[in-house]
Simulated scan of single mutants.
Amino acid sequence: MLFSALLAMATPLAATPERFYEPEFSAEAGAVFAAANETSAEDTRAALEALAREGDVSALEVLGEIHMFGHGAIARDPARGCDYFEQVGDRRADSLHNLASCYWNGDGRAQDYPKARALYRKAAEAGWRMSFCAYGKMLLLGQGGAADAAEGIRLCRMTALLGDKHALADYGTFLLTGQGVERDPVTARFMLERAAEQDQPNAAFLLGQIHSKGDGTPVDPATAAQWFEKAWDGGRSDAAEQVAASYLRLGYIQQDDERVTLKPAYLRKARSWYEKALAAERPGSERHGKIAALIPTITSLIADAEGSGGD
């Protein structure tokens, strides 16, 4: 099978699954999850825990996910989410991966790289697609054990070639930075585009940086803005300032003879995005202060451009 052949090219894990693990959820657990927006947190939790007591392991996974990320009336509670993943144990590969992430991120559990590494490997052995590159990254970086860059790269490359968006983003990053592999910004961009097309926000953010800096492609602030906006839509709050900076470059154009051309439409977009960036920063922080000081300057530029008849 294709999977077995690719795995043989990568690191020899303790077991070679014949196919990737496909998570299944009971109809009952799915119905409770779907109704969570119209149900109290207590009722949602009680219904799922009742299903779990009856042997529905998928209900425990749902409980872990909705507490880890927040859903409906249930507020985000990472520690409780990790508790539910731990209750599942090795009965679900996705729960193993999620518990590994608790330890890797230090979110809901004290950060513990050796535990994360062991759990990612175990989830990969059980066939969870995302775990191969998660484990591979730890090999590459030497987190939680000895480094093995070659094996780590092979695991991420393998899963990227199979289309996993997170592996595409990670492998694209390694190609972009030359970490563990020869630097190749053109192939990196291809990998990152495949990931961003699947709404992977980190890949979209990196694509914004690539087009902003002209790394392996011409400098293109308009395209950079589009990718940064996609990253923002995917949850990267730090992308707002980058969107704003891209529009500012389009709206404030300094000619070779030092004359300046102002484009008020782009400047208005820049101001709007700087306002979003300001709201995402902690009041009193250095970044908050710098952005707050920049907005009136852009407002003044807009007035100058409109007063001179700019478009």
Rank of each mutant, 00 (worst) to 15 (best):
G208Y: 00
R53F: 15
Q179T: 13
L60W: 08
D311Q: 06
V62W: 05
L278C: 04
K165M: 05
E193W: 01
R45K: 04
R76P: 02
A270T: 04
A75D: 11
A222I: 00
K213I: 10
K115S: 06
I66N: 13
E65R: 14
V181L: 15
L294C: 00
A79I: 06
P12W: 05
D233L: 14
P218V: 11
L139T: 06
W128A: 08
T11L: 06
I74K: 14
R259L: 07
Y103P: 01
E281V: 11
E65F: 11
D215P: 02
G180E: 14
E22Y: 12
L162P: 05
G284A: 04
A147Q: 15
E275P: 06
A244P: 00
Y113H: 07
D257S: 05
E286H: 08
P296K: 01
M191Q: 07
Y21N: 13
A244C: 09
S308T: 08
G309R: 15
N98M: 10
E125T: 04
A50C: 14
A244R: 00
G127M: 08
L96W: 11
E38Q: 15
R154G: 01
E229M: 04
H71Q: 15
K276D: 02
A244S: 02
P218S: 08
M9D: 09
T16Q: 14
A147H: 09
L248Q: 06
Q143C: 05
L7C: 14
M1C: 05
A15L: 13
L250H: 12
A147P: 12
K165E: 07
S272V: 06
K230I: 01
A59D: 14
A160K: 00
M130N: 12
G142Y: 14
F174S: 09
F132G: 04
A303R: 13
L48E: 05
V186I: 11
A93Y: 10
R91G: 04
R157E: 14
G284V: 10
G145T: 06
G136P: 03
L51P: 08
K290T: 05
L7N: 13
P114S: 04
A116T: 03
A270M: 09
N98T: 10
L161I: 04
G216T: 12
V57E: 15
L7H: 14
A149F: 09
D220C: 09
I298L: 01
R236S: 02
A169F: 02
G307E: 08
A46R: 15
T177W: 08
D148W: 10
A146Y: 11
T223W: 00
A292N: 03
I253D: 03
A293F: 07
N105V: 10
G30A: 12
A149C: 05
K263P: 03
P78V: 06
M1V: 07
D184P: 03
C102N: 04
A15I: 05
R53A: 12
G180R: 10
A167G: 03
L161R: 07
E42C: 12
K276Y: 01
